[in-house]
Design a protein around this nucleic acid. Structure first.
Length: 811
DNA sequence: TATCATTAACTTTTT
DNA sequence: GTTAATGATA
């Protein structure tokens, strides 16, 4: 393999942008992939179907540009949505080429914007120590604002205002751009403005601001814009269908300029890669329309379509194609495979959500035992998080390890946020959000009244809470003074220290450790805090620090610009004052909230929403809850766009599966505390019959009215058991029992009384909602104090108070 | 100040 | 039905 970088950082330039077709980089690419990879430096749209090797094309494209000398590492900007995608791109790229990825601008939109803002913070009107507000912080900042302006939270809901502000920023709109046609709008705009002023005063930026501010930076400073336009000869955008208005506008700043309202691209090359059929984030501002606009404004003659799928068998792709064909607004694309038809999709109807869960679990057992599919290659997907509960319960009782995606992530945990707040105050004492978070945590006698006074004083003086402390007298003032003094001590002690010691020092000096040690359930929190120290340690030792931190502005050849005052393309390039390790780590924490907690180890069944499954693939996939109202969701049915997005969501779900796909739905489901009756999802009707295998007889479905209710309109108990046909399946279960739970379900309809020890006897088989089945080994105590020792099959021996534990006798 | 009780929401979510 | 967040009470 040729090594364009042999002998150091200066790449060898070759004028021949071609490599032999059998070059290792290009080997095994299909014609369309090859076309995309070796495209001359022009603007291009790559329509990359699910499983069509999108990431491979993207990374190979970059490698090809570098290997042929058409680009230098410093001349490439590649942008993704998630840190995970950015990491993967970097990893795969460095596997393709011996490469110093440090100088490369590969990252998330927000990561790159942050990099720009750090490098040019003065031009952008930000303090050098600006901090990033995550969504939680933003909400508390908004609540604080409303309180300060004496606005009733009933009148303006904080969440709604947050949504309003974030939405405006996603569209690139500042308060003065917004209409104020009525009182409510006027108020919202005023509050938006006040919020901005507050953020500016405190030196914090939220996620939307990160984007908007760097967009404006480029827009309003021509020399700077031209500099970056000349520098980044190649822009590559991943998941283009998920970009919002502002992100597209941001890209355009780097790729051209407006003349009389018309966009004129400059000389660099933008490659947008995406799939309009997988656009599922309209609700957070994504705008599929950007794809059409891109074609128009960048003069794309013909998109390159990657339609060969390397993931799924034929029936799965037929189903996906057939379903998505029901959408009107499409660029048009059909997936194909050379893998053969494979198995048909298995469709199952169950009487209730409970039985659906049990059926899925039984089937998972078979998949792992008989078909040799490892648990982590099995995914159970659902439309909304609430649905995981039933499935989790069934898996838990069956003793099958599972992992649920979603929930709090590492840097979002309360104790971590507390620790980070102290750290942020070391960097920037005017960060009022952080100040309020910890001013009385751990409790140090600073009550609500004192804080009110402090806030009033800060408002009057137009300064930060930190600076207003001296204005407060009395006992509260003394306590506040002590707090600030403590912060000052921590700051002094941290000077010149390695990050690890800074954090350890703060954990001790803030009293956080002590506080959690005294708390009953503080052990886990202390572990997490320890983990924070570890995270910092590995952050420092990894190159992540260098990468996330300020990049030295590079000139066109990718060589770091000489220090201070140097001009690059006519721009006074600020030398990146290298970020302190602490500042870099805080950024890292804000921009990358960390992994969703992995409950079980490797061999775990994967549970997640369909949204969370995007980009992943599994041997076997269950799509559950395929019912009208749930999937498609009720809230999306009011508009055609909404329904089409739901359909794309279904498309994403289907295309996750490699070999086997199950589609399940339940007749009744416990929702919002009551049993609801659902008819099967319309999406089932939109699948090709020849690719389906009904494991329960397909029922005549309602076509507009309630006609479909006839068969099972009664109470849950009266639902007729379908005659289960399991022809052609591996089946060790008796045919008639497939849908029946193994253990008697915890009786919901006829609550068993287990509060008194009377019915529970030694030796008895019992059922516990959490621990499943077990045998009573011993009983002691009387009445309310009665306890039983139970040996649970899956979870060992436990003592349970009968007054509390719900134990049901099993016959 | 801490704990308990009551109440509203509740689709999807990354940065 | 469950949770998260607020308000009331000891």
């Amino acid at each position: 393999m040729t090594d364009p970088f042999a002998g150091g950082g200066t790449p060898a330039f070759s004028n021949a942008p071609s490599l032999p077709p059998d070059h290792p980089l290009l080997r095994d690419l299909n014609p369309e992939q090859l076309a995309a990879v070796t495209l001359p430096p022009v603007h291009a749209l790559v329509l990359a179907g699910a499983g069509s090797g999108k990431t491979r094309v993207l990374t190979t494209r970059i490698a090809w540009l570098l290997a042929t000398g058409q680009a230098t590492p410093g001349g490439i900007l590649a942008v993704t949505f998630t840190n995970k995608a950015a990491r993967e791109m970097l990893t795969r790229l460095s596997a393709l080429l011996p490469l110093n990825v440090r100088g490369m601008w590969i990252g998330t939109f927000h990561g790159l914007c942050h990099r720009l803002l750090r490098a040019h913070h003065q031009l952008a009107g930000l303090p050098a120590t600006f901090q990033i507000l995550d969504t939680q912080d933003q909400l508390s900042a908004i609540k604080r604002l409303l309180k300060a302006l004496n606005i009733d939270e009933e009148r303006v809901k904080p969440k709604e205002l947050q949504w309003f502000i974030a939405g405006a920023k996603e569209d690139g709109l500042r308060p003065h751009h917004l209409p104020a046609r009525n009182d409510l709008e006027r108020l919202q705009v005023e509050l938006y403005q006040a919020y901005e002023a507050q953020c500016q005063r405190e030196g914090v930026v939220d996620f939307g601001e990160l984007m908007l501010r760097s967009y404006e930076l480029l827009r309003d400073h021509e020399p700077l814009r031209v500099h970056y336009q000349r520098r980044f000869r190649h822009l590559l955008i991943d998941e283009f269908q998920d970009t919002n208005r502002l992100q597209y506008a941001w890209i355009k700043q780097l790729a051209g300029h407006e003349v009389d309202g018309r966009f004129v691209p400059c000389g660099n090359a933008v490659m947008a890669v995406g799939d309009d059929d997988q656009s599922i984030y309209a609700f957070r501002g994504a705008r599929v329309g950007n794809m059409r606009d891109f074609v128009r404004e960048f003069g794309i003659a013909e998109p390159i379509k990657l339609e060969r799928n390397y993931r799924s068998v034929g029936h799965i792709l037929h189903a996906a194609n057939h379903l998505i064909d029901h959408n009107r607004q499409r660029l048009g694309k059909n997936l194909r495979t050379e893998q053969g038809e494979g198995e048909r999709l298995r469709v199952v109807e169950l009487p209730s959500d409970h039985e659906e869960a049990q059926w899925v679990v039984d089937e998972i057992r078979q998949l792992t035992r008989n078909d040799g599919i490892p648990p982590h290659e099995i995914a159970v997907l659902y439309r909304s998080n609430a649905q995981s509960r039933a499935i989790e319960g069934a898996l838990f009782n069956a003793g099958i390890p599972y992992r649920v995606y979603g929930g709090l992530r590492f840097f979002e945990r309360a104790e971590i946020k507390h620790a980070l707040a102290y750290l942020r105050l070391l960097e920037n004492p005017h960060d009022d959000t952080s100040f309020l978070r910890v001013v009385n945590f751990p409790p140090r006698g600073i009550g609500a009244r004192t804080i009110e006074q402090l806030q009033q004083a800060a408002r009057d003086a137009g300064c930060s809470l930190h600076d207003a402390v001296t204005a407060i007298g009395g006992r509260g003032g003394a306590a506040l003074g002590a707090f600030v003094a403590r912060l000052d001590v921590m700051r002094e002690r941290s000077v010149g220290r390695p990050l690890r010691e800074i954090i350890e020092g703060v954990l001790a000096d803030s009293g956080l450790l002590e506080h959690y040690r005294a708390e009953r359930e503080g052990a886990e929190r202390i572990e997490n805090l320890q983990e924070l120290v570890n995270a910092a340690e590995s952050f420092v030792s990894q190159e992540g620090f260098g990468r996330d931190a300020v990049a030295l502005p590079l000139d066109e050849t990718g060589t770091p610009a000489p220090a201070a005052g140097a001009t690059a393309g006519g721009v006074e390039a600020e030398t990146g004052e290298t970020l302190s390790p602490l500042a870099a780590f805080l950024t890292h924490a804000a921009l990358e909230a960390g992994d969703h907690q992995a409950q079980a180890g490797q061999a775990a069944v994967q549970l997640m929403t369909v949204h969370a499954a995007k980009g992943l693939e599994f041997d076997a996939v269950f799509i559950t809850g395929l019912e009208e109202g749930l999937f498609p969701h009720d809230n999306s049915l009011s508009s055609v766009d909404g329904l089409e997005e739901e359909r794309r969501l279904m498309y994403v779900a289907i295309t996750r599966a490699r070999r086997r796909l199950y589609l399940t739905h339940a007749q009744t489901r416990l929702l919002h505390g009551q049993t609801r009756y659902h008819i099967p999802s319309r999406f089932l009707d939109e699948l090709p019959a020849e690719s389906l295998q009904w494991l329960s007889p397909p029922r005549a479905r309602a076509s507009g009215g309630f006609g479909g209710f006839g068969g099972w309109g009664g109470a849950a108990a009266g639902v007729p058991q379908p005659a289960w046909g399991r022809s052609g399946l591996t089946d060790e279960r008796p045919a008639g029992l497939a849908g029946v739970p193994l253990a008697a379900p915890p009786a919901r309809s006829a609550p068993a009384v287990s509060a008194s020890g009377a019915e529970i006897r030694t030796g008895m088989a019992v059922f516990h909602t959490k621990f499943g089945e077990g045998t009573v080994l011993a009983i002691e105590g009387q009445g309310a104090d009665a306890r039983a020792q139970v040996d649970f099959r899956r979870h060992g021996t436990k003592w349970l108070a009968l007054a509390v534990a719900k134990l049901t006798p099993v016959s």
